[in-house]
């Protein structure tokens, strides 16, 4: 077999073996997430970051499990840890539905999981105390041996000012309603 035939065969092998693109969803060494209280980067494992992705800014329908930020004593404030508890387990993940060479649009949502009611929805709605990055893009390398990037185009962003939203849990609301009803009944008697 001549060299050209080998190259053709090798190219076919690459295409078949690397159908799905990979991404590094970590931001250590890149842009950070800050807040008014932590201008050098937020810390605390109750804060989580969720990476959303899709074909365009209007179609960010897929996401990875939320990654916790690091402990208060970290040397890398403002960065989340994909290997942390509850996270996807590894910084390098597969982009479902995106092949090598394609460009994917991304956005990062941040919220404090210790705040009742806070979640991706409140972050995407830019509620106080949550954070939402600008959308940015990542082009998956065509070279199958390239170490994937991902967050390189993300810009530093801050949590929305105004403090954490205090959203009562449903059980709290129900207890409050019961208490109010009891008071009303007592007054009528």
């Amino acid at each position: 077999m001549n060299k050209f035939a080998y190259l053709v065969a090798a190219s076919a092998l690459v295409v078949s073996a690397f159908g799905q693109g990979s991404i590094d969803i970590g931001n250590r060494g890149l842009a950070l997430v800050t807040s008014a209280a932590q201008p050098n980067g937020i810390t605390g494992t109750s804060f989580v970051a969720q990476v959303w992705y899709g074909a365009s800014a209007g179609a960010l329908t897929k996401n990875f499990a939320p990654s916790p930020f690091r402990v208060a004593t970290t040397s890398s404030p403002g960065t989340w840890n994909p290997a942390g508890v509850g996270g996807p387990g590894n910084a390098i993940q597969t982009l479902d539905g995106f092949a090598a060479g394609s460009t994917v649009t991304l956005q990062v949502a941040v919220w404090d999981s210790a705040v009742a009611g806070a979640g991706a929805a409140s972050a995407l709605a830019k509620a106080a105390g949550t954070g939402l990055s600008e959308t940015f893009t990542y082009t998956i390398p065509t070279d199958p041996l390239a170490i994937p990037g991902g967050m390189g185009n993300m810009k530093t962003f801050a949590l929305v000012a105004g403090g954490a939203p205090v959203i009562p849990e449903p059980t709290t609301v129900a207890l409050g309603a019961l208490g109010a009803a009891a008071l009303l009944l007592r007054r009528r008697k």
Partner: peptide, 9 residues
């Protein structure tokens, strides 16, 4: 593909 392991803190 790759898996990564980082040494932080």
């Amino acid at each position: 593909s790759f898996v990564s392991k980082e040494f932080v803190d």
